[in-house]
Amino acid sequence: MNLVAFQTIVIKEITRWTRIWTQTLLPPAITMTLYFVIFGNLIGSRVGEMDGFGYMEYIVPGLIMMSVITNSYGNVVSSFFSSKYQRSIEEMMVSPVSNWVILAGYVGGGVLRGLFTGLIVTIVASFFVDLQIHNFWVVISVVLLTSILFAIGGLINAVFAKKFDDVAIVPTFILTPLTYLGGVFYSISLLPEFWQGVSKLNPIIYMVNAFRFGFLGKSDIQIGIAFAIILVFIAILTSFAMYLLNRGIGLRA
């Protein structure tokens, strides 16, 4: 593996998202502050407890995960599509960088932004709630794997995107609904049995709950199943992304 090339792509990505920090790092900090103020302080106090925890405490892991998912995905989809649009992707295509390294580099850049944003949201959350960590390794492994999964998803979206609208379609119409219905704000145990079953078809449920387990030690689903699902999705999306890159779909005529 060409480690220098991998490092180059990751540094390029970090340079990009730090250069435009007002578009990448500031908005999640502001949005999440608003979530904490409105859902946590104002409405949360009336909601009462959720699964035995204060509402604010309950939604923090989900909100951190939401920002990680959005930013990991958003970074790769916009950066890779922008490279396609400006044709600067050709810089890599003419060079001997393997498709594995291109995928790993972009995913690495997206994951770092996702995690950095997650850290910002965690710091913001610590001003509102006394954060406890039940299992540090679960927190780290779930957030890392979820970030990787959505970063790969972002690259696949970018490969197929032909115009800027295509970059926004998946986050707006698929990712946001799935995240909001993914148990960020509520426990699925509150739902009727039928809707609990439907909710379990939403993969984000497993990520949010596994992450919440890492913080609170409480989850609607089994942690082992959550890890298995995340890993299976990573394997499927990685294979698909490599297929697209190797075939040059959306990249080579």
Binding site: N2, V4, A5, Q7, T8, I9, K12, T15, R16, R19, S82, S83, Q86, R87, S88, E90, E91, M92, S95, P96, V97
Partner: peptide, 18 residues
């Protein structure tokens, strides 16, 4: 076909990195 927002030296050094 370079990224219009990247610096001149950055573009060259990145290309070398690939």
């Amino acid at each position: 076909n370079f990224n219009m927002f990247e610096g001149v030296e950055q573009i060259i050094v990145q290309q070398a990195g690939y």
